[in-house]
Design a protein around this nucleic acid. Structure first.
Lengths: 220, 220
DNA sequence: CGGCCAATGGAACGCCGTTCCAGACAATAA
DNA sequence: TTATTGTCTGGAACGGCGTTCCATTGGCCG
């Protein structure tokens, strides 16, 4: 954290962590991860880069804070679920959808191990795993398996949409291009990849995601 | 890929994709992800940045190629395993150890969806999942669950060692610092995280990693 | 031998994150 | 009221990055 702001609204329309983070999210959503620069941010906030540094220590912290804002909202919205399993599914799907809407959150989560946004998720899952009656000595392994799976899917999903954007394609066309690459691999060395290439562009990510969650939950 | 090299060794000690990738790996291993720059690479190869661009299209491709070199070696070494399950475990552990030795591989894998290094892993796992007799319509979900879990752990592991390096700590001290943060969280909001904070620095990552693999395999 | 062209390597371009610092402003003390 | 203090601003500047450009090299072929 940067030096704390002691007075609120000392000037009209003054800068604040909140305003900076909000503007960052807008920038990230509209221009992707590479769209967040201190210069672009300064322009949007009608100030200079130096002013931002009074409120934010560095870009890494800013990205983590923006990610945390999204995750915090997501956790608030997905408080539903009758059983523990359903709650876990709800949290997982909430994250999935959040990353679908804000791809940069996926890579931010992946690069901030042990930080607040990840802890929010960890806590939620942990409470439900406990509620399921998983013995204490297996709670860690269970929760970390779930968390790592979720973060893995997050990262891949984020990377997919990012690469698609980079190449100027929409998601479907991008997956189609990869499927095409796969189907042209050596039949002897890559029989399996070739055989499932066709499923890549048409399968339902979201459905397969919960299937994976269930697979882990069923293994308990 | 850049324009193909038509002649080999036209000059003594000439540049080549192979030499460039090898030097990149050395650079990444010794100085981390941020240590790979075209200038540092040029210096190590006693040339200029422009010469490298004759053989390599851009930095992203270079990183993916370096990652692929490591994964290809790893896949070759972990060909053992009596049963299909043991083979999957062997592949997974091979990747785990590779990322432990080359943390940058973790984040490279995460950022290259559908690319060759990921496909190598996908194929290996797919063949074993098939050998286990998983029905065709569930193969995709099974393989992608395993793959995403593996990539998730990879990413987190890589991020951990990267952040530890950034802060000038070794892995144990870094995890200890996070555990300390966790144990000071609000007891009402974060009871679970607080309760498992103590396990974070002392638990065996590698063991928990295979435990997660088994959890997924058992869910079949 | 002379021309061709793959291959080289160093300079330059336009960005980036970050630092620096002169100045503006609200709150307080005199 | 005025002087002082310390928070907060914003634009200039620094070093470094990925990438491009291009004059030059040096092996090969007619």
């Amino acid at each position: 954290m940067a030096k704390k702001s002691l007075s609120s609204g000392r000037r009209e329309e003054s800068l604040s962590q909140e305003r900076i983070i909000e503007a960052s999210i807008e920038l990230l959503d509209s221009s992707g991860e590479s769209g967040l620069t201190f210069r672009a941010l300064a322009e949007r906030l009608a100030t200079g880069p130096g002013a931002i540094y009074w409120h934010i220590d560095n870009k890494t912290d800013l990205l983590t804070a923006a990610c945390d804002a999204i995750i915090a909202r997501t956790m608030q919205e997905s408080r539903s679920g009758d059983t523990a399993k359903q709650s876990i599914r709800a949290v997982a799907l909430g994250i999935f959808d959040a990353i679908d809407a804000h791809p940069w959150v996926g890579s931010a989560l992946t690069h901030a191990p042990g930080q607040l946004p990840v802890v929010r998720i960890l806590e939620r899952i942990g409470q439900q795993v406990r509620a399921m009656g998983v013995p204490a000595d297996k709670q860690w392994a269970t929760v970390s398996a779930l968390l790592n799976y979720i973060l893995g899917v997050s990262g891949q999903n984020a990377a997919n949409t990012h690469m698609a954007r980079t190449r100027g394609l929409d998601r479907a066309n991008f997956l189609g291009a990869i499927a095409n690459d796969w189907s042209q691999l050596d039949p002897v060395e890559y029989p399996f990849t070739r055989s499932i290439a066709g499923q890549l562009p048409i399968h339902d990510d979201r459905l397969d995601f919960v299937a994976g969650i269930d697979l882990i939950l069923d293994g308990l």
